[in-house]
Design a protein around this nucleic acid. Structure first.
Length: 758
DNA sequence: AGCACGCCGACT
DNA sequence: GTCGGCGTGCTC
């Protein structure tokens, strides 16, 4: 028996039409088309759009998603569907519309979009057609046992613990077995006896697995705002009250109090009866943000991220679906959360690349936030200290509102930043100035961060005789030398070769180790400061669950003097104790083969600079660079986004990239390298033919220089397309997919910047 | 994506 | 003579 009420989000519309009803369904397979099935009479009362059904499909049986009731297509022998899998719809019509939009925009099969939108716990109950009928998937709903007292008289012989429990139950009403256990210790024999005597009855209740179990958070109340915060908030509140789609860029420098603006905007939205969706780059890196939300709003918050177990994620999803949640905080996939009446969507750190999903459905949650906001008539806040050029440009064009927080709260100064030119002094990776600053900090007992965006020991191997270095044949970047594994590998495509002992070009016997990685810096520091407590944080040291938290907590408790790390030390956590930030090879990510490399460099430098002086003590930053005048570095050091933005616009103009430049990728995959190569050549030829036929301005890169690499047993290759016009690109891809002569292994996906969404 | 059918190469 | 590689076509 279930005591939880099931809320039917849609009343069952009984159609009086006596014709056999048919439904249109999407199947979670890479197929562009939808399919129709007859609904057998016994299932008719249970079927409605948004439920999953089980259908015969070819020689198999699969789960499918009901999109709508349909007029049966002419001249088509339809099959009967086998079963209805859900008692209530998984999605509302509005959500199905949203997913259909996604399928069209990203050229991805609707069924797979729907599958992606589901928590993986219940995702797919694919059953094979073999007589063994293997059933997989279908997450369990967890129940707990509830005990409640009946009014029968207790026999005199009952005493001791049994009597105590009975008295407790009579006084308190229904209680779970877990609670009885904490109160009375092991008591199942007593309970069994009470049930046998007819004094107590049991029932089952649905329970949610709670990712916050046992966490207590001190209550927090709205803080007073700075003038700029107040101005931004006033605009946001007016937009929320207006209940129309209203997108904003909230451009606030680090420490300017963006979160407080979110919190008060959300509080207002909730008070007006609407709900809030908050997207964060990687929630496991930002536990502090979640804590602040919980402190402010206590209940009614759901959290969705990759560290949840399937069971937890499924439970959070159900809580949201049932309307038991007012605020959803999550990583990119939370954009699919089944939250209704969304009044505000916040995308925190909107420039973060982790909003992009790069396999399967290749979506960008930041872009989809704008689309969903538009469909839901919601206010959308894109918050960042270093917005995407795209976003800043859109704001300049008036396509989204521009809200600026140019000052830190409490008048905390920005860290003093100086640049050290290392072009002539490349002997040691640590400059004398930096070493001096580090020892000063050690003497004062203050913490330091050292940032180097390169993991491993040495970056690459170079031949001292002929100067040849080892490059990735796919990605035209140098292979990184990993000393422990004795391998050189490409950090982009995972291409790897055993580290050579002699130069592959001229046969020189000793190769020189060039460049440095975090591993090497850690060694240097240990030698130079033997008494200092040094920790390293990069993807090599944070493996396993809670790897980040373990290191971050140590730093937070003051048990680390110097933390060396890659990108990941730049994000999320606040360290009030850190007063010195050192950046090694600030230009490190500047010359990657990506037209956004400068933008990314500026962003990550700004972030890591912002880590200094978050607490009471002032912070300073030393930035080592071989090209200190480069605008991506110099303006980051000056905390000057606007001038960087202007310069970057000019740069892109010169290279003929639009400010909202995008790439589209046709991804090809096959099980053999040979068939892939054929497919890629054929595919590129087809694209060029279509391009000239339609007269499109599209640049086609590949297949020749494009990466060919092996991933999860399949060979993959990309053909990149570039153009200023998304419409042209779309026409190209549509025509491309229609082309009959294409190999079956070809699949298309687009990666786009979304200015034209607005 | 699966799954079947169909067509040529090297094996017990 | 068959087993098995993958190319192709289909799934309401």
């Amino acid at each position: 028996m279930t005591t939880t009420e099931i809320k039917h989000t849609q009343p069952n519309q009984a159609e009086t039409n006596q014709q056999p009803r048919t439904v249109e369904v999407a199947v979670p397979l890479p197929l562009d088309t939808t399919f129709h099935y007859r609904v057998p009479e016994p299932l008719a009362s249970r079927i409605q759009p948004g439920v999953r059904v089980f259908v015969p499909f070819g020689r198999r049986k699969v789960t499918a998603y009901v999109l709508r009731f349909s007029r049966p297509p002419e001249g088509q022998q339809l099959k009967d569907l086998l079963d209805v899998l859900d008692p209530e719809p998984l999605w509302t019509d509005a959500e199905l519309t949203f997913f259909q939009w996604i399928a069209d925009y990203y050229l991805h099969p609707l069924g797979e979009v729907l599958k992606t939108a589901l928590p993986s716990g219940i995702n797919l109950q694919s059953r094979s057609s073999a007589d063994g009928e293997a059933v997989s998937g279908g997450k369990k709903i967890r129940h707990e046992r509830i005990f409640s007292a009946l009014s029968a008289d207790a026999p005199a012989k009952l005493r001791g613990k049994g009597l105590d429990i009975l008295a407790f139950l009579r006084q308190s009403g229904p209680v779970s077995s877990a609670e009885l256990k904490t109160r009375f210790g092991e008591c199942s024999p007593n309970l069994r006896r009470l049930v046998e005597l007819g004094l107590v009855q049991t029932s089952d209740r649905e329970v949610y697995r709670d990712p916050f179990a046992g966490l207590i958070v001190a209550k927090d109340s709205p803080k007073s705002l700075t003038l700029h915060q107040q101005q931004a908030l006033t605009t946001i509140l007016a937009a929320v009250d207006n209940k129309q789609f209203a997108p904003f860029l909230l451009h606030g420098i680090t420490g300017s109090g963006k979160t407080e603006v979110y919190l008060q905007g959300i509080a207002h939205t909730l008070a007006a009866g609407n709900n809030a969706l908050v997207l964060v780059p990687e929630i496991s890196l930002t536990p502090q943000l979640v804590q602040r939300f919980r402190a402010r709003f206590s209940d009614g918050i759901a959290v969705l991220h990759s560290a949840l177990s399937d069971g937890e994620r499924y439970d959070e999803w159900r809580r949201i679906r049932r309307g038991e949640v007012r605020i959803v905080i999550g990583a990119r996939s939370a954009i699919f959360a089944p939250l209704e009446r969304i009044g505000i969507i916040v995308v925190d750190e909107e420039h973060e690349a982790s909003f992009k999903q790069s396999d399967g459905l290749r979506y960008n949650a930041r872009d989809l936030a704008l689309v969903r906001g538009q469909q839901e008539q919601a206010t959308v806040l894109l918050g960042s200290a270093t917005p995407l050029i795209t976003t800043r440009f859109a704001a300049q064009q008036g396509k989204l509102g521009y809200l600026s927080l140019p000052e830190r709260v409490a008048n905390r100064p920005l860290p003093a930043t100086s640049i050290i030119n290392t072009r002539m002094t490349a002997e040691s990776p640590l400059s004398p100035q930096l070493i001096e600053a580090l020892s000063e900090n050690l003497e004062r007992g203050e913490q330091s961060l050292l940032f180097l965006n390169r993991r491993g020991f040495a970056s690459w191997l170079v031949c001292p005789s002929c100067g040849a270095d080892l490059q990735c044949p796919n990605c035209s970047v140098s292979l990184t030398y990993h000393r422990q594994r004795r391998k050189s590998l490409c950090h982009y495509c995972d291409y790897q070769v055993p580290a050579p002992c002699i130069c592959p070009a001229c046969g020189e016997l000793e190769l020189k180790e060039m460049g440095v990685g975090t591993e090497r810096i850690e060694h240097e520091l240990l030698e130079r400061f033997p008494d200092a407590r040094i920790a390293r944080m990069d993807s090599d040291t944070t493996g396993g669950k809670g790897g980040h938290a373990r290191i971050l907590d140590k730093v937070g408790r003051g048990e680390v003097d110097i933390l060396v790390g890659t990108q990941m030390i730049a994000k999320g956590h606040d360290f009030p104790g850190v007063t010195l930030v050192g950046v090694l090879q600030a230009e490190g990510s500047l010359y990657l083969p990506d037209f956004r490399a400068t933008e990314r460099t500026f962003q990550v430098l700004s972030q890591v600079i912002g880590r200094a002086g978050r607490g009471e003590l002032a912070g300073r930053v030393l930035l080592q660079a071989m090209t200190p005048d480069h605008y991506g570095i110099a303006y980051a050091a000056d905390h000057d986004f606007e001038r960087f933005y202007q310069e970057e616009l000019l740069f892109r103009q010169e290279l003929n990239y639009p400010p909202y430049g995008f790439l589209a990728a046709i991804k090809l995959s096959a099980t053999s390298e040979k068939s892939l190569t054929t497919a890629a050549e054929q595919s590129a030829a087809v694209l060029r033919a279509i391009k000239s036929r339609l007269g499109l301005r599209v640049e086609i890169l590949g297949p020749a220089p494009a990466p060919l690499y092996r991933l999860r047993g399949r060979f993959r290759q990309q053909i990149l397309l570039k153009d200023a016009s998304r419409a042209a690109l779309r026409r190209l891809l549509t025509a491309y997919r229609r082309e009959q002569s294409l190999p079956a292994t070809v699949r298309a996906a687009i990666d786009i910047d979304p200015v034209d969404l607005l």
